[in-house]
Design a protein around this nucleic acid. Sequence first.
DNA 1: TCTCATTCAGAATACGTATTCTTAACGACG
DNA 2: CGTCGTTAAGAATACGTATTCTGAATGAGA
Lengths: 333, 333
Amino acid sequence: MRVTQQDIARISEVSQATVSRVLAGDVRVDGVIRDRVLAVMSTHNYRPDVRARSLRQRKTHLIGLVLKREVGSLQDDPFFAMLIAEVVDALAGTPWHLCLDIAADTAKQHSIYDELLRTRRVDGLILVESEASDERILRLQQDRFPFVLIGNATEMPELHAIDNDNFKAAEMATRHLKDQGYQKIAFLAGPQNLTVTRDREAGYRSAVDNPLVIYSDFGAHSAREAADQLFDLHQPDAIVAMDDTMAMGVIQAARARKLAIPHDLGVVGFNDTPLCDHVEGGLTSVNLQIGNMVQWAIRRLVDVIEEDDVFGSHQAIMGCELMVRGSSIRSQR
Amino acid sequence: MRVTQQDIARISEVSQATVSRVLAGDVRVDGVIRDRVLAVMSTHNYRPDVRARSLRQRKTHLIGLVLKREVGSLQDDPFFAMLIAEVVDALAGTPWHLCLDIAADTAKQHSIYDELLRTRRVDGLILVESEASDERILRLQQDRFPFVLIGNATEMPELHAIDNDNFKAAEMATRHLKDQGYQKIAFLAGPQNLTVTRDREAGYRSAVDNPLVIYSDFGAHSAREAADQLFDLHQPDAIVAMDDTMAMGVIQAARARKLAIPHDLGVVGFNDTPLCDHVEGGLTSVNLQIGNMVQWAIRRLVDVIEEDDVFGSHQAIMGCELMVRGSSIRSQR
DNA sequence: TCTCATTCAGAATACGTATTCTTAACGACG
DNA sequence: CGTCGTTAAGAATACGTATTCTGAATGAGA
């Protein structure tokens, strides 16, 4: 059977309350008794039961993250692995843990959120992939549930959020291609309802005279099909892709058409994932400091939970850096 | 404030016990009352508190997964993303959730396991990357804690485990290269203490006359360095790499030396990750049916937890399939 | 010496639920 | 008409912890 505070109390010949106090580091307990209790705890390998603690403290010490992705497609995009890893890393060494769920579609995602917060399984949520008018946010605010958004929240000021400067990032990527002498630069966009798509598209448009935009789902496969369309219809000589995975789709399409990179086609991606090094010559990509964003978000979220600061409003913008590699350096050729 | 069974009871003019019974679908409660209570629950949007439930039922409905990986290196290898995604997918639609942790080294991993099970945060664990004599397994068995191993357990019969046929997989990959006319086939192995390394090495050795093995850490970078050593010292004309990520390291090294794939060098990886399609011509890889393995493991684990079958012993071996792509087809050239 | 403040630890309670124990009502059967 | 079995729901309890409430002991100050 499992050893409880009751057992420790009995063996130490003190009350259960005292054991609890020792555990909490309460200064009011006598040194002699404290040491005795600690010794008993140690010899009996005692650890408090997190289930009882959760009930009593009304806190599970779990952070929820619900990704939206089709079954079996998470591994396509290292971005999600980065995200997950960064969250867990940020939580390491703290009393907090990650509760991870993946939903196949928006409806499922909503019901999972609902379940998580209404059953009180998690103490707070990290939101990613925000949409233009995000239903999740409204619900969470209504329920006064702690959450932090990783994404654009300029139109919803009453919340905690951190975002990339996606406008600037896309602008920078596009200008870079222009500087390299590319003439007809297209933008391979993601789903149109996402704020990240809108922001990057705007940045792209601001840097180009004759914008050429095509929307596509995430993933190399969809991107490849979209790239094929672009090549068929418009023959661009450079493509800014929404992320590295989609850039890989572009590269696959280019290979099939014997288009040489970077000579015939310049390519830039986003996220600076490990994929960039797997491309011959390297894939130019915008580093968005996802790790820093996640760390900020987690710190904020824990603060919100512990200070009960649900109504506060901290927002931050993370800088970005263009990592120039072979896929966009035409001048060398 | 949050609505509890007590509130539902008061409003429905029944006792809290009855509400609990209605929730559990207890047949002994009268139909009229049941409907009344259900209606009140519905209008008040009631959901049971998972924290109280965890304490009372002694069950958190959380499955733990602790990966061992250096900080920030999880995204290098799609294998982990696959693993995580498959676990979460297998849990979707059940009352179970995933609690994910990542440890930088073995010591940290052990302390996380210890914490998870002794505080009763999770009800069971999925173990991956088993070592030859795995301390984790001994501890868990000692504590009679539910777990399922994804890995080789032939030397530890008293547990639930599922594994690939790694011997056969490596043998198959090696023979394939031989059949394609490669003469000097090397094996780029992973850490030597892992059972998966040992099994694949054995399979490789069984298929080759003059074995040529080099050990390396996981990840493209380490693999590239190891591959450079191989090229310097032994000039192999084909390499079987422990996984696709390491195969990418090999390919990077080959590119730097202007070795043409598959003409000058044949390459085979493992896991059949999305990386395979990102290589020009495609990377040949062994599909290990990770999804099926994970599904089996989760089903088993949930059974073990719910049937309290900690002492049972179910084991299974998953088949594999060689996905032949351009990186190993010399005959076409 | 008496009073009062202070310190420390035990007793009691609450967190929200599931379940066992108890009791009331009712019908059947002798 | 009384007894007993059966059914249904309320009362009570336990899960393990944190915390408030209470009381005993100690020491200081008058």
